[in-house]
């Protein structure tokens, strides 16, 4: 007798998975169960690295990193500012860089529709869970409306799994910044002026300075720029810039690294 794979049954398999390979297998099953083109978990730089798994071609994962797309990706920026799922078409794709990314992603078969769920773990950990596909707007609205609850639950299980996996790998950071110190340095690292960061965090500039100062002392930094740089390298805050040269982990990555990005794209021209 044939048993149909459903998102719910995949959830049970996910709960039982405890290696990256098993998670990767679950991701592939889940993609089939949902009938989408791609399904990806992407943890952004809790310790200066990108870490993820899913069904994107390794060549695309590598290209995304090589091109430093994370700095301009409207999905990452949009999710960072929100806590509910984000439909890609509700984001601002008007900048030249964003349009180029979109064109490149389409050429790599990512699909014209996407739905990303931001996830936050302890110590400001930030990750995205994304499904993408090729279909019309009404079809996609119907899909996301039907499945979003399951997708949110899957996103959180995946993140718990990822946290467990990482714990075995890297030691806890020895420096602990408070949530407000993390906030302050994160906004500075994103290029906001002190006044803007203070406004976003709804605190006075004076208070913001005190957070920056306490973070600076904890980090043993000479000035604010130094503190931001140290927080990035220690992986205490999230920003696109730290990731470029960091060692990430992605199934199939070693294969992709030997592939020239130009040849990877060649088939689409």
């Amino acid at each position: 007798m044939e048993t149909r794979t459903t998102p719910r049954s995949c959830l049970a398999a996910l709960e039982a998975a405890d290696t990256l390979t098993e998670l990767q297998e679950c991701a592939i099953k889940l993609r089939t169960a949902l009938g989408v083109d791609h399904l990806v978990y992407h943890w952004i730089s809790v310790d200066g690295e990108q870490f993820g798994f899913g069904t994107y071609a390794p060549a695309w994962a590598q290209r995304y990193q090589d091109r430093d797309y994370i700095r301009i990706d409207p999905v990452v920026l949009g999710c960072f500012q929100r806590f509910r799922p984000v439909d890609w078409k509700s984001l601002d794709w008007s900048s030249r860089a964003a349009r180029d990314l979109r064109r490149d992603a389409l050429a790599h078969g990512i699909g014209n529709q996407g739905f990303s769920i931001p996830i936050r773990g302890p110590n400001g950990q930030f990750a995205l869970f994304t499904v993408s596909s090729t279909c019309t707007d009404p079809e996609w609205d119907d899909f996301t409306g039907t499945h979003q609850r399951d997708l949110i639950l899957v996103a959180h299980v995946l993140n718990d799994k990822a946290l467990q996996l990482r714990q075995g790998r890297s030691p806890q950071p020895t420096i602990q910044l408070s949530p407000r110190e993390v906030d302050a340095l994160t906004f500075l690292a994103m290029g906001y002026a002190r006044s803007q960061a203070a406004e976003i965090l709804k605190i006075s500039e004076h208070t913001l300075r005190s957070y920056i100062e306490s973070a600076r002392l904890k980090l043993g930094a000479l000035n604010t720029d130094h503190a931001v740089a140290r927080a990035l390298t220690e992986g205490l805050i999230v920003s696109g810039g730290a990731i470029r040269d960091a060692k990430g982990d992605w199934p199939g990555r070693s294969v992709a690294q030997t592939t020239d990005p130009a040849t990877a794209l060649a088939g689409n021209h």
Partner: peptide, 11 residues
């Protein structure tokens, strides 16, 4: 606000 409908239209 959210760029997608609160009720998904029937396809």
């Amino acid at each position: 606000a959210f760029g997608r409908p609160v009720t998904p239209p029937l396809v």
